[in-house]
Structure formats: C-alpha cells, structure tokens
Design a protein around this nucleic acid. Sequence first.
DNA 1: GCATTAATTTGCGTATACATTAAAGAATGC
DNA 2: GCATTCTTTAATGTATACGCAAATTAATGC
Lengths: 225, 225
Amino acid sequence: MKDQDAKTLSNTQRAVRDLRRMILSGELAAGTDHLESELAETLGMSRTPIREAALMLESKGLLEMRPRKGVRILPVSSDDMREIYDILTELESLAAQRAAEAGYSEDELAVLAGSIAKMDQAIEAEDLEAWAEADELFHQELVRLGGNKRVEAIVAMMSDQVRRARATTLFIRPLPVKSNEDHRVVFQAISEGRPGVARERHREHRLQAQAMLCGILEKHRLNSL
Amino acid sequence: MKDQDAKTLSNTQRAVRDLRRMILSGELAAGTDHLESELAETLGMSRTPIREAALMLESKGLLEMRPRKGVRILPVSSDDMREIYDILTELESLAAQRAAEAGYSEDELAVLAGSIAKMDQAIEAEDLEAWAEADELFHQELVRLGGNKRVEAIVAMMSDQVRRARATTLFIRPLPVKSNEDHRVVFQAISEGRPGVARERHREHRLQAQAMLCGILEKHRLNSL
DNA sequence: GCATTAATTTGCGTATACATTAAAGAATGC
DNA sequence: GCATTCTTTAATGTATACGCAAATTAATGC
C-alpha cells in the first residue's frame, strides 16, 4: 500500500496528491500563503517537484503562484460558487442526457443505484458526512456514464474547487431530503432511456442546489472559503 | 515589442507561448515526440522552464509527457472533436443566454457586431483564413460577454485543442454562409435581451457545426489531426 | 521626526549536475 | 539462428547552486 508512495509514484506526483489533500481538508487554509521552500520541507523533498506540483494545481484552480508572495491557496467566494455551479449544471445535465441515450443495463447502473441507496441510508442515520460522500459518488458516476472524458475532467476540477465550501455549508443547510428525490428521478429517467427528461430533471436539481448553497453563503457572509 | 520577451516574461512563460504557437501552427506536428532537451535547445533555454511549460500545456490538453518517450503532441480524433464540441455547445449556449440576460448596450456589443461584419466581408472575398479568425473572435467575445471566467478559460482550452483540426477542414467544408446567418440571429437575440432564444439558437448553431465537422473528418478518414 | 535613499535580506527563476531506470544493443548459450 | 541475459546508453526526475530582483530594514539628510 504505502509502497505505491516510494516506488511507483514520483515525488512530483506525491506532491500533487498530498498538496491537493491538504488543500481540500483545510490543512492548508484558503487564503493562506506558503513559500515553496516551506512546502518542500513539509513534504520532505526539494523545491523542484513542489514547483511542478504547484504548477499543476494552479491550472486546476486550487492555488495561485505569486512571485515572492508564495503559493496562495485560493479561496472560493459565492461568486465563484455561482460560476462553478453554472458549469456543473450544464455539463452534468449533458452527461445525464448522454447516459440516458446510452441505454445502460441494470448492471451498468449498479454503482449509480448504489450511491442513491447510500444517500438514503445516510439521511436515515442523519450522517451528513456519509451523505456528502455518496452524493459525490453519484455525481462522479453520472458524469462517467455520460461517456465524455473531458467533461469528467472538468467536473472533477470544479468539484475540487468547491469541496471546502460544500463541507462548510453541510452543517448549515437543511437535511437534503429533496436532493435524494431528485437523484431518484434522474436515475429513473436514465434507466428508462429518456434523455430529455434526465437532462431537464438534473438541470433543475443543480439549479436548486446552486440557489440553496449560494443563498447560505451570502446569508452567513461566508465570502471566502 | 520584442522587449516583452526578454524583460517582463519569464523563460517559462515564453516557453508556454512559443510551444503553444508551434503546436497550433503545426510546426510541432500532431502525434510527434520531442525530447525535453531538444525543445530546450530549440527555444534556447535549459530543461527546467521547458518542463514547467510542458506541464502547463499538458493540463491544457495540448500535449502529453511520457517518461523516456518525450513530449507527445496530442492528435485530435473525430471522437475528440465530438467531445469538445459537446462541451462548447453547452458552455457557449450558457454564455449566450447570460449575455442576453445582462442587457448589454450597443457599445458593449460592438466587438461582437464587428466580428460578424468581418465574417461577412470574408465570405464576400472568399477569404477563409480571415473568416476563421473572425469566427474565433465571435465565439471568444460571446463567451466573454457571458461573464463567467471559468467558462471563458475552458472554452479557450477546448478551442486550442481543435484549432489544428479546424484549420484542416477549413478548405474542405462548404462556404460558411449558413454559419453567418446563425451568428446574426444569436446576436439579435442578445441585443434584444432574449436569453432563451439566444441560448437555443446558439445551441443549434453549434450542433450543426459539430455534425458538419465530424462528418467531414470521418468521411475523409482524417482521424488524427 | 519624517521622508528618501542605501544596504541587506530573501525568495524565485533557471541552469546544471547527477542518480535512476527504462530501453536499446551486444554478447552468450543453446 | 533464436532466445535470453548482460551491457550500455540515454532520458528523465530531482537536488542543488546561484544570480537577480523585490521587499524589507537601516541609514542618512533635512
């Protein structure tokens, strides 16, 4: 397991993985600056792989490299949230449509169905962390079923950018009961092979999620997460 | 002018700019491999900035770094073209909608109008290069007016990826007369503030462009450009 | 005491060196 | 002649060194 670390992965790859983790977990807080040399020491490697990793994470929108000021972990404002959800709405709806067009078998839709089941259980148990994880899986799998690798990559990128903000709002927002119903409707449209319905239902789902999340952020003046 | 080169831009930035140029122009042909050291010599700098530039261009989907095999300039297949146009269709349509919602003044729409005028002139003169340039400007400006920076970045990235392929099909495809009409319709919807119409018209425009381009690629067996 | 300039520090950009390891080629055994 | 193993080559991944410019601090003049 840990062998993956030293053996197959290069230091640059490890740096990408670890820095990403630290950013998403909040260990590297939004808005904070970090010198390349600090990060290098923290991760136990030289500046070279750190710089390469930072460059990659910069193009994924997680941080920004500013000469002499260090690497800045990018905060997410409610405006950013809007931008990102606009994109997620469009691309995921497309994916839902394409998934419905593809005519997947029950087997092929098992993961998607499983993610919905997990969300139901999580709601039952009022376990928000588990719900969030299953929700993430649903959206990821939906996009995978859409069959467009680039959409997959973009959606993953956008999801990363809002993950911190989502984690924060998780305990403020209402219990996502409605959300689960939405997922079920989308799933049904896909399994019945109804592209138009899948697309539109998912679109509405995302628009509502966006309105809710941005509303919360603005109401609570959470303007950089 | 040339001062920008040595003065304000870092070698890494120059490498990004120059490599991108060379890829888009075909000077670095699709599917070819290039050692980091070769590229370094070509651009007159050390491997370090070349590696950094390559990393950035890799995340923009223009090339791929494969250990020991060198930097590979990514070809674009007709499947790639489909993926990319699917994304452009969704995101540009959103931009058209948002631009219409924004209620821009005539002044603010001047660049967009100008690009349409240029396309008309180009068609008149049967100057396809000029038409392509103006078309590029139209789409770029449309997305800018949409007001979503991330959409702008993604669309730019996708456009880069298909630029070579578009250049090739340019002289095979029919004269883009219909295309110009489409642009005018979209423009009108935006200037009249009709988001739904702008969105739908642009969507249809892109779907047609996609069908036409992918059709040509497949018909001519152009499967990696 | 304040502003302006000089000195110093510090972090980055980049060249360079080197260890590692995959790939290519040579040599050996059958 | 062919397969297999050993050698050699060569390209990468990474550490390191260093010049340069920005930022900070000290110093000087008023």
